[in-house]
Amino acid sequence: MSAITPAMVLWAYGQGYFPMAEGEEIFWLDPDPRAIFDLDTVHFSRRLLRRIRQGQFTVTYNHCCALVIQRCAERRKTWLSAAIQQTYCQLHELGHVHSVEVWQDGLLAGGLYGVTLGALFSGESMFHRVTDASKVALYYLVERLRERGYRLLDAQLLNDHTASLGAVHIPRRQYRELLQHALSQDCHFT
Rank of each mutant, 00 (worst) to 15 (best):
I4S: 03
T5H: 08
P6I: 06
M8N: 10
V9K: 10
W11I: 08
G14D: 03
Y17S: 07
F18M: 10
M20G: 02
E22H: 14
G23E: 03
E25A: 14
F27E: 00
W28N: 08
W28Q: 06
P31S: 04
I36G: 04
D38F: 02
D38I: 00
H43T: 14
F44G: 05
F44T: 05
S45C: 07
R47G: 13
L48S: 05
L48C: 04
L49Y: 09
R51W: 01
I52L: 06
Q54E: 15
Q56F: 13
F57N: 04
F57H: 09
T58L: 15
C65Y: 02
C65I: 07
A66C: 01
A66I: 00
V68H: 06
V68M: 04
R71L: 14
C72H: 07
E74M: 11
R75E: 05
R76Y: 11
K77Q: 15
A82N: 13
A83K: 13
I84F: 03
Q86A: 15
Q86E: 15
Q90K: 13
Q90H: 12
H92G: 03
H92T: 02
H92Q: 13
H92F: 12
E93T: 12
H96E: 04
V97D: 02
S99P: 04
V100R: 08
V102G: 06
V102E: 04
G106V: 03
L107I: 09
G111V: 00
Y113G: 09
G114T: 03
G114F: 03
G114V: 01
V115S: 10
T116S: 12
L117P: 04
S122Q: 03
G123N: 11
G123D: 04
G123M: 09
S125Y: 10
M126A: 10
M126F: 10
F127C: 08
F127W: 07
R129P: 05
V130N: 05
V130A: 12
A133M: 09
K135P: 00
Y139H: 15
V142L: 08
E143S: 10
R144H: 11
L145M: 08
Y150A: 02
Y150F: 15
R151N: 00
R151G: 00
R151A: 01
Q156Y: 06
L158W: 05
N159A: 13
D160E: 15
D160W: 05
T162K: 11
A163L: 11
S164A: 13
S164M: 07
L165R: 08
G166M: 10
G166V: 05
V168A: 11
H169D: 14
I170D: 03
P171C: 09
R172N: 03
Y175S: 00
L178D: 01
L183S: 06
L183M: 07
Q185P: 01
Q185E: 11
D186P: 01
H188V: 08
